[in-house]
Design a protein around this nucleic acid. Structure first.
Lengths: 108, 108
DNA sequence: TTTGTATATAACCTTTAGGTTACCTACAAA
DNA sequence: TTTGTAGGTAACCTAAAGGTTATATACAAA
């Protein structure tokens, strides 16, 4: 992975790891400290820290601060473009899918 | 990227490169030979070949054969899970979005 | 003011990504 | 049956991913 990729590549790259996806899913339920985010995993603290940095570079999380804690929060907007890309292919896996304008044409 | 990841990670990893995304977009318009797929890029043949292998490992393309050509076709089904994952976060980037059951509750 | 806890950084290691050039194979056409 | 074209494979390189342990920093509490 040559770094300094375009934003969409960074987003998909960040999603290409189960640990990082689990972190995002956890954060969907609310902010969490690094300790809390690390809890489900067997890896060291620094390893989790690196995963968080990848998510941060992709703009998928933000870092807060409260005393000695640095709670992370979800920042989901980059996922919009990711979802949009995948959605372009929806008709291939969903045979009965018709894009919006086609649908309107039928219903009017 | 430790290889032999779960399918969803392989899918997202395959998407984490603009060349590979462009190949998928091209294939959405129909099958294409390796030569045709390579045309838009400045990189060598083997480099494109490796990208195709990544897409193949993710199950996103299939390899056909006709004389000396090995036309690739799109296989979009892995994108369904990718889209589903991103969609779980839709409410965060789309404030007025309500998941289906909530919507039904309002309309009935 | 020491001690414990939360987190980040540094230095290191192994494996892989992603590119290159050189070479090999399969097939079609002349 | 040589020659050209499509494509794959091998060997190589550099940079980065993703992990480790050790160390540093920041803050709270005793």
């Amino acid at each position: 992975m040559r770094t300094a990729q375009d934003p969409l590549s960074r987003t998909f790259f960040a999603l290409a790891d189960p640990t990082r996806r689990a972190v995002l899913t956890r954060l969907a339920h609310g902010a969490a400290t690094v300790k809390e985010l690390s809890a489900p995993f067997r890896m060291s603290g620094p390893a989790v820290s690196k995963h968080l940095r990848v998510l941060e570079r992709a703009g998928l999380i933000q870092r807060g601060r409260a005393a000695q804690w640095r709670p992370r929060t979800l920042e989901a907007t980059p996922l919009r473009e990711a979802a949009a890309f995948a959605d372009e292919f929806r008709r291939f896996w969903e045979p009965n899918y018709a894009p919006l304008d086609g649908l309107l044409e039928v219903e009017r």
